[in-house]
Design a protein around this nucleic acid. Sequence first.
DNA 1: CTCCCACTGGGTACGCCGTACGCGGTTTGA
DNA 2: TCAAACCGCGTACGGCGTACCCAGTGGGAG
Lengths: 252, 252
Amino acid sequence: MATGDSFDGDSRNGPAPELPTSVRVSLPAPPSSRGPAPTYSRAQVAAAAIAIADEHGIEAVSMRRVAAALGTGPMSLYRYVDNKEALCELMLDHMFGEAELPEPTGDWRADLAEVARSLRRAQLSHPWLARIAAGRPAMGPNMLDIFEYGMSILDRLGLDTADMLEIFALVSSWVGGFVQEEVAEQAARRDRGMDEREWQRSMSRYLETLTGGGNYPYFTRVVRAGADRDFDTRFERGLDRILTGIEATLPR
Amino acid sequence: MATGDSFDGDSRNGPAPELPTSVRVSLPAPPSSRGPAPTYSRAQVAAAAIAIADEHGIEAVSMRRVAAALGTGPMSLYRYVDNKEALCELMLDHMFGEAELPEPTGDWRADLAEVARSLRRAQLSHPWLARIAAGRPAMGPNMLDIFEYGMSILDRLGLDTADMLEIFALVSSWVGGFVQEEVAEQAARRDRGMDEREWQRSMSRYLETLTGGGNYPYFTRVVRAGADRDFDTRFERGLDRILTGIEATLPR
DNA sequence: CTCCCACTGGGTACGCCGTACGCGGTTTGA
DNA sequence: TCAAACCGCGTACGGCGTACCCAGTGGGAG
């Protein structure tokens, strides 16, 4: 799988046609022979932004800071990126380039599960990713690579394109939702650093404050018993359920 | 189901104990008898913020604007809400109060499907919701109501608490991921207002620009054939697959 | 070889933002 | 009665995204 630099590589192609911003951003930079060569590449810009997000959180990523990290002024960034929104999309697609996908085994369930695990791994290794991805369509070249890989797995099942798309979207959107909850809870616990015991006690107090302790019997039970499994097994079990559901609703 | 005003109602309870911000925010305001009565309520603040988000988009929601909508100064808001993050959580839980849940029928598949549809409906009626919810744990009173409702449905299946939680989380996180993609695509199309035909053509051009047309065979096929079904049927079919998967992996 | 001009780098400035701080007015329990 | 507790809100600071503009650069056309 690509390493995420798929932005600057090749240069064949004319002037960018009118496209929605959310798509145009993923295009490689135009050839541009006339003036001096650009000092940086889009990949460098993305890498700088990602480094800041990893170290100081996504909210610390500002045009000024990214520019400073590159050793330049704030406005210079706009030579590489239309605006901050575009910078985010650049970071987003760059990350999906890190996903490593093994050679398909031929067992579609196992192979699709591996795609799901890769997507989760990518988003988990950079927790701010889920925040960025929210409400943004992800169709950069790297995400498209993963899409193609997933579709090729489903191609053995004799479905039409719409069905394949539907199934791929089912898996990938579940992974997205799952990881979102996962990082949310991680962040909430890190908020004030509390361990399992402390968190449990503070949630109990929350419940009592809310209703005097009477209502919310199920949530109370979950909190009291610490009844939530760890995310790894929840993920695997959920994945298994979803794949089972897909298999069961396959034609013939 | 509550209408979302569950914040200001009752007043019994002592001073707020030390809780993580992400949880404390959902607490009803302390009784506070001493000074003059507050001019507004937390529900009013939330409603004002929501109105702005609905009309001008979530990024237009600023402390200053919300305050102005209420007819007051920016700093007055901080009497009702710790900071902007807290305002967002207030909006979030307030929205889930709008979800209307019918009386359970006793058929757990149908009932759980109805919960899923309610969650989707709530998030779809305010597209900015998905953006806000990303990476934030949602455990306000209204979300807890939905949680309790869902768990009570699953309670008939003879599972332990951890299994019930797992299944509820599976459904709700899938809905979250699905709606996220749904509003993302809606937003992308609205970005520049283009209909089906235009979008198709611009995506074709995007593909050609990307690779000269050769790679991404599946995505090309999807774009060329317009092979994506509408979101309503995708949702129903996905939901059916997930419920089937759950049913198939039920013990005994 | 020359010159033009597309291109890059980057400074300045504007209008927003979140919010720390603090002051004056109001209410109420002691 | 009066101090403590609370509310409303004005002022101000530092940071943000980015519009605008100008100087420098280097390849292609003449």
